[in-house]
């Protein structure tokens, strides 16, 4: 497998991330349904997280053995540590994404609670209908 092919494949992955981000932004902005908005936001978060993970990516070539950033030898010699430095992928993007996923989950839970509350309040999760209801109510009070 030559390096040029890996570069092109990497670029295709990056472009597919752009498409993912664009489509989820579109859904979050344009779809009137609150549940669909929340689903789009989770897709957006996961796309961005995958993007961050890509930064820690390393080119694979025949003869190169890569490993996760975990040292499996508990009594390492300096030779083991030197090999670990060469083989392991970048741990920092993974650490950033790790917390981001849980925060994303907590925010999703909060948004789901808000959507449920709105459903009990308005009887619908369609933001167009909710907006119409509110306009109607405001006009009635102004009259």
């Amino acid at each position: 497998m030559d390096t040029e092919f890996v570069r092109v494949a990497y670029m295709i992955v990056v472009l597919s991330m752009y498409v993912n981000i664009g489509v989820s932004l579109y859904a979050a902005l344009a779809k009137p349904n609150l549940v669909k908005k929340i689903i789009a936001l989770t897709i957006l978060g996961d796309s961005v997280n995958t993007f961050i993970i890509l930064v820690g990516y390393r080119f694979w070539r025949p003869g190169v053995f890569l490993q996760p950033p975990v040292l499996t030898n508990l009594r390492p010699t300096s030779e083991v540590i030197r090999q670990f430095l060469e083989k392991a992928v970048d741990p920092i993007p993974q650490a950033l994404v790790l917390t981001a996923i849980v925060i994303n989950l907590a925010v999703t839970v909060f948004l789901a609670t808000v959507a449920l509350h709105m459903y009990r309040h308005f009887g619908t999760v369609n933001m167009d209908v909710v907006g119409r209801l509110k306009r109607y109510e405001v006009r009635k009070e102004m009259a």
Partner: peptide
């Protein structure tokens, strides 16, 4: 891509995480 300037940062972390 991937950004080459980030690798020294990763090497620094990997070198100190468990090193007697």
């Amino acid at each position: 891509l991937p950004p080459p300037r980030l690798r020294p940062l990763a090497v620094n972390v990997l070198n100190t995480t468990y090193n007697p």
